[in-house]
Amino acid sequence: MKHIQHTLFAICILLIWSCKPEDFGPIGEPQNIVKSIQGNWGLTKVTQIDQDASTKGFPYKQLDITAVYPYTDLAVAFLGDAQGNPTTFTITSGNSPKITDLTSGNWTVDNVKAPTAISLKNGTVVNILSIGSYISLKSGKLIIKKDKKLNGKVILSYQYEFTKK
């Protein structure tokens, strides 16, 4: 009996002794989202989303309106300085309907490390667009959303999908 106890005790000691922190490999450099946004982008898809219908569980929640007018004419350039900070932007609509009130000005983000919104500003006019998935940025797609609110509730959204030029 004592023999078994000694054996179990030795196994326990051995197991505890064998525990040690596991080494994980490096996960790589963090993605610089702001820098990924900088560049020239062409509009490739426009989706209109009835958020009110989504909230109520109604059918007919969204509609691809890209082909209705020449939305794909529209191009956006987000420029940055040498340090990668946002500076100016230009929006060239061509024959596309406007997607913001502005065609040029300065752009900023709400959070440099993890931006969720882009502010476009020219004088006193400010347009705020929200940024979609970061993952798509790696594959050269920028997804931007514009919300229209009523009494603080989002009623209608436009999702713009840009492809890097």
Binding site: Q48, D50, Y60, L63, I65, P97, K148, L150, I155, L156
Partner: peptide, 14 residues
């Protein structure tokens, strides 16, 4: 039917 159900005059209506 109208899509979207609520919109302003700058919006696309279907």
């Amino acid at each position: 039917r109208l899509f979207p159900a609520k919109l302003d005059y700058t919006d696309m209506a279907t």
